[in-house]
């Protein structure tokens, strides 16, 4: 079996994987990093989004071998150095942007990629960007609100409740 090596959340990792092993499976099964979730098998739901060399990627769509040598960031590495929630995570908690929590890792990782690209997105830009992230609990209301808040925009006026 081929060996892969990659830096995950700043730490060097390596493992023997089959050619067909997906990056999501490498993270979850080989490294035991179960924060990255798998919610579908057609790359639609986005629960598995991680960053590979700084780009948002659906980790169920990529073989582990393709990420050989890459820098990978996952939900487990998003908190601040002191363990407190980062700005996006904190905004999700403040604005009730999650319920069951299953889609949340992918939402946070996608939101981070969006705000890196577009620091002050409009509501429509947030909604469009989340096209590849499904949530079944929130009706998206508080996710969109949380991401706008994380970008530093005033969300006080959004839909009274």
């Amino acid at each position: 079996m081929p060996q892969v090596s990659m830096t995950v959340n700043g730490k060097a990792t390596s493992g023997d994987v089959e050619g067909r092993t997906l990056l999501s499976a490498y993270l979850r099964d080989h490294l035991g990093m179960t924060g990255t979730h798998v919610g579908c098998d057609t790359s639609q739901c986005g629960a598995c989004v991680v960053h590979v060399n700084g780009e948002a990627v659906k980790s169920c769509t990529m073989f582990a071998a393709e990420a050989d040598g890459a820098t990978v960031d996952t939900i487990e590495g998003q908190a601040n150095a002191d363990g407190s929630l980062n700005v996006i995570q904190q905004a999700f908690q403040d604005h009730h942007g999650l319920q069951c929590g299953f889609c949340t890792p992918g939402m946070v990782m996608s939101a981070a990629a969006l705000l890196k690209e577009n620091p002050k997105p409009t509501e429509q830009e947030v909604r469009d960007y989340l096209e590849g992230n499904l949530c079944r609990c929130t009706g998206y209301h508080n996710i969109v609100k949380a991401i706008l808040a994380a970008s530093g925009q005033d969300v006080g006026a959004i839909a009274a409740e």
Binding site: Q44, R127, L130, N133, R136, Y140, H141
Partner: peptide, 12 residues
């Protein structure tokens, strides 16, 4: 499945 751009903000 409904996606973020299929729905508006809701008033409750």
């Amino acid at each position: 499945m409904p996606r973020a751009d299929d729905v508006p903000f809701y008033t409750v």
